[in-house]
Design a protein around this nucleic acid. Structure first.
Lengths: 228, 228
DNA sequence: CGGCATCCGGGAAGATACTG
DNA sequence: CAGTATCTTCCCGGATGCCG
């Protein structure tokens, strides 16, 4: 009967004209937004997404990629030879979801239960820089840093009160920082001195350590929300 | 063994320091953000939330309210006598999530699959006004409207290029519009002429119909994202 | 190895009925 | 009206295996 057909198709939908509800239908499933986060700074391969998202299983990742592709948020693309591998990349509209990721990230940073010491993916850290960057503190400052997390290399350039970051090696960086994202987060958000982490072997810094210290000064976590 | 304990506690968490991931743990479950949306313009009772969210079942709503209260996003409060009923209201931090709702709503309005003719809750409509308001179009304009959706009454005031809306009757409104949210959305976002809906009986307008027409001119849906 | 299909166990969501 | 209890369905997560 008709009723059955309706329930078949729509049982799991919100049936709500509100844009927020529609957004949730697109990226409200588990892992979906985090997959988009990982693609926000450029295309990635299936396995590289998995590495950045420990905990997601292969079949769920497959399902999400299918669903997000169908929604028009991302597309699969075959890299030209000699690479000839398949990558997933966001569409222009998909990239526009960066605002969602940043807004949610900023909001949740105020949660009393937020634990910033958990593992962090490289892309995640770079996006958090965009989210937490304080233009006022950076006014009239200039710093260029290169971050190396294994194979993944990123550049962060601060100039004219603006932060621009993304994939790729830096042109004449003040310092090159190599390691994992967690100690970098400890420096930038936890107020840990870089030297401490160099001594412990968690970070390797080539160039001006002071540049990283100044860089860290441009960022501040928002104060926790009142629990009352 | 230890492994079992870890999985018990953390099977369903992302184990990710990224703020976005933490936000998803708080409000990424089904219905959670829509419940917050319904509370965004003021406290509500259990049954009233249910009415605004057709499709949610009572037990799921109970679970979400418990979870969101535990997260510090909302609290339950007993209204003083003679009302003496229990309501749910957002905490200050919970209200700060309005930015998430608006960002997601604006983004999803560009979806090729968005169907704006579905049912719409009153709060949803009012929040969409905040999201889609065009300050440029409203410069030097002044309009005050009162919307009556059954028992729920809202005021929208445009002045000095700003929109302020919320619950409550308007002071000297240019027009009072009574009906359901859907035809109002048709006027504001669909370009339907108010008179048409008055004739069909979908809307009842007391006062200056032209005020509603001008009001509608302040809003515009963003253009759809390219499907390529 | 990368991508995807399949099977299974557990748990969350949905529908309905029931209770104070 | 405000939930609770119960049952079913389906999604998530893990494991395995196939295929290029």
């Amino acid at each position: 009967m008709k009723l059955e057909k309706i329930t078949e198709e729509s049982r799991r939908r919100y049936e709500d004209a509100c844009g927020t509800a529609h957004a949730l239908e697109i990226l409200g499933e588990r892992w979906a937004l985090l997959i988009m986060r990982e693609l926000m700074l450029g295309p990635k391969r299936f396995g590289d997404i998995r590495t950045s998202l420990p905990g997601i299983s292969a079949n769920v990742l497959t399902q999400r990629l299918e669903g997000l592709e169908k929604s028009g948020v991302l597309r699969r693309r075959k890299l030209p030879p000699p690479a000839s591998v398949q990558v997933y990349e966001l569409t222009e509209w998909g990239r526009d979801a960066e605002g969602i990721i940043k807004t949610m990230g900023f909001w949740a940073a105020r949660s009393p239960n937020h634990d910033p010491t958990l593992p962090l993916s490289p892309v995640s850290l770079l996006l958090s820089f965009r989210t937490m960057f304080g233009a006022d503190e950076a006014r009239d400052e200039r710093v260029t840093l290169e971050f190396r997390f294994g194979e993944e290399v990123f550049t962060c350039r601060v100039a004219a009160g603006e932060l621009i970051n993304g994939r790729g090696e830096a042109d004449a960086p003040d310092a090159v920082i190599a390691g994992t994202p967690e100690p970098v987060a400890a420096v930038v958000y936890g107020g840990v001195d870089p030297d401490e982490l160099v001594w412990s072997g968690a970070l390797k810094i080539d160039g001006d350590v002071e540049a990283l210290r100044r860089f860290a000064g441009f960022f501040e976590l928002p104060e926790k929300a009142a629990t009352t």
